[in-house]
């Protein structure tokens, strides 16, 4: 069974994020790493391919400057190869434009199953996977907390407001996985060494056959009109607990008439 995992390489979330003063886009110039949220999809793909008795896990990603650091992490976990779309004309691309790029790249891999995270950690638009599914004419099941393959169908436990639904779909299909669906493995030293020589195909927008007008800032058909500081909450009171901190909480709750 061949599985494609859509992965995003993002600025390190531990570093303070910033917007470009001119374009108001998220600054993505420095080193990028594999989005933590995507480690679950990669692990799930490896487990499903393994359980199906073989098949390849292919990564599909879009990033500036031919960035592959995050892809190498996923390759070190065990993915076989990667397709990276990297092109200067992609700067400013929105969720739908990204979906068009990913869909075109996914198609080349002819997968039985496409996995993605429910949303990225840096942009969290949360619609790109279903947009990819729609563009490829695939059924999709989002917010999976459990995924199983039986024969030619995928069975998913999908989060709901009240609990979860059991959902079945024939393959090929796209599934988005929540964090915690599986425990991602740490890449082994052997894996890290092997990842260095695994194939990463780097493609341009033209090579994917996409129209330049559909991507980039122009294709996004939206603009940021303003960025402002949020109304700050008045600074609160800080109490260092030396055994009586709970008393202050009780007084506070009494003040609010919660007690």
């Amino acid at each position: 069974m061949n599985v494609v995992v859509c992965v995003k390489q993002i600025p390190d979330p531990a570093a303070p994020p910033a917007l470009d003063a001119g374009t108001k886009n998220l600054v993505r110039a420095g080193k990028l790493i594999l989005d933590d949220s995507d480690a679950y999809g990669v692990e799930m793909a490896l487990q499903l391919a393994d359980a199906a008795g073989g098949g390849e896990v292919t990564l599909v990603s879009m990033a500036p400057n031919g960035e592959t650091s995050g892809l190498r992490t996923a390759l070190a976990m065990g993915a076989a190869k990667a397709i990276l779309v990297s092109d200067d004309s992609l700067a400013g691309t929105d969720a739908l434009g990204t979906a068009k790029v990913l869909a075109a790249a996914v198609k080349r891999a002819e997968p039985d199953l496409v996995l993605a995270a429910t949303e990225s950690t840096d942009g969290y638009t949360g619609t790109t996977p279903v947009q990819v599914a729609e563009l490829l004419g695939l059924p999709s099941v989002t917010f999976a907390k459990k995924v199983e393959i039986t024969g030619n169908s995928v069975k998913v436990e999908r989060q709901t407001e009240a609990g979860y639904d059991e959902v079945e779909s024939p393959l090929p299909a796209l599934v988005t996985v929540t964090a915690g669906v599986v425990e991602p493995r740490y890449p082994s030293f052997k894996g890290i060494m092997a990842a260095k020589s695994k194939p990463v195909e780097i493609l341009t927008v033209a090579e994917l056959g996409l129209d330049a007008g559909e991507i980039g800032a122009a294709g996004a058909r939206q603009e940021i009109t303003q960025v402002a500081d949020a109304e700050a909450r008045a600074a609160g009171e800080i109490v260092v607990d030396e055994g009586e901190g709970h008393q202050r909480v009780i007084e506070f709750l009494e003040q609010l008439k919660v007690l």
Partner: peptide
């Protein structure tokens, strides 16, 4: 919303 966006070829603003 995501499906509609791709179907109509219109962008989406979320959050």
């Amino acid at each position: 919303a995501g499906r509609l966006s791709a179907k109509l070829d219109r962008p989406v603003l979320t959050n």
